[in-house]
Design a protein around this nucleic acid. Structure first.
Lengths: 207, 207
DNA sequence: ACCAAAATCACTGTTTCGGGGGATAGAAGC
DNA sequence: GCTTCTATCCCCCGAAACAGTGATTTTGGT
């Protein structure tokens, strides 16, 4: 029996999910909350297995609530819930410990599948949401200035811990040249030092 | 004709796979078993080309069975099978000689592709499982030395581009202290400079 | 209460980084 | 032809990082 709890500030959504799930065997309706604080209140004296959570809520939003819940109760699996699919929010939810993401207009079957998958420790994405996330991850860097071949090469070596003189030796260049490229990298990517350069490079998967 | 054998303790899965594969040309249904021992029994007097194997089974689990089968019959290619994708198990399966891994809710096309790839000696990963493995390999390789609170804090600030003096000012510390922590970070994580420090930190999600 | 770990501070070097200023040559594109 | 971009090279200089070696105090856990 999977105990499901809902947090959403839209009564219609709660009603709808309730009617979808109430006659479902294997699913127990643990209750609902209409904002973050009353949700946290519920979990003080109660618990649930799966928490369906709206992303857009007044006061504390789903992303933050997700993080709080996961810290206090790591055993509760959280399924993000939203009307639109915006990659950024999906990604943040996942980073904060959510186990999946579905759209509010999902079919009953999809909803059940998602709940069950998540309850088993799995990760579930509704097809469209998955696409959105993928798309976001790809398109999260059209504003990145293009790096030349040499620059990428040197960036990679910097990330591997080589110093300018070492890189110069490796590539048969003057260390002045390597330094120039390095400065160009800092300038192009608009970062102040090696630390932020590497961070950006790894996060944006340039290396 | 690829002879396919299934080991899974869920009748539904066996049924499902059977109906998916039975009318497929090029695929022959060699049989099925519902636990490790009857699987081993089958292979005494019979054989197969590809073995679809559930990871989670009572008694002997897929990981162990995988190892046994591969020792006795190195020619049989094993394809891991599971409802959700957990990096640790995937990795162990692969270490024990599996040739790939797919999720039970894979599409028919994906299943066929996986079987054919594996039968040709290739390695197949369903996209999601591949991600999980990648993620796992990065975020839980050799155990990371534990960082103290202060060290994590300073690591975060380094990653944001602050210099030692700036961090010192921010945290009301001597820059000597910050420098000490920084050196400890380099030593603990066994890296030579800021570049590799930040790379490691981002890849392993320490920040 | 005690021990180990963490956190703090200190000094002295050497090396590397990063900002600033340049120069030259070749390739790509208009 | 002219310009723009890349790649190469050069110099100065201050700031930051890194290495080595100390130390003391605070804190957390058994």
């Amino acid at each position: 029996m999977i105990r499901v709890f809902i947090v959403d500030d839209h009564p219609v959504v709660i009603e709808g999910l309730h009617s979808l799930l109430q006659n479902e065997k294997g699913i127990e309706w643990a209750g609902h909350a209409m904002n973050a604080s009353s949700c946290l209140g519920f979990f003080i004296n109660n618990t649930a297995d799966v928490l369906l959570m709206d992303i857009n809520m007044p006061e504390m939003d789903g992303i933050e609530l997700c993080s709080v819940i996961k810290n206090k109760y790591p055993g509760i699996f959280i399924l993000g819930l939203s009307t639109f699919n915006q990659g950024i929010y999906i990604k943040k939810m996942m980073e904060n410990g959510a186990s999946g993401y579905i759209l509010k207009n999902s079919s009953r079957d999809e909803l059940l599948k998602a709940i069950q998958t998540v309850n088993n420790g799995g990760i579930y994405f509704s097809g469209e949401a998955g696409d959105a996330l993928k798309e976001y991850q790809k398109s999260s860097g059209p504003q990145l200035p293009e790096l030349s071949r040499r620059e990428k090469e040197i960036l990679g070596l910097i990330a591997e811990g080589y110093t300018n003189p070492q890189i110069a030796e490796k590539l048969f260049l003057s260390s002045f040249t390597v330094d120039s490229h390095r400065k160009n990298l800092l300038a192009k990517l608009d970062v102040k030092n090696t630390a932020t350069l590497i961070r950006l490079a790894v996060e944006r998967k340039l290396i």
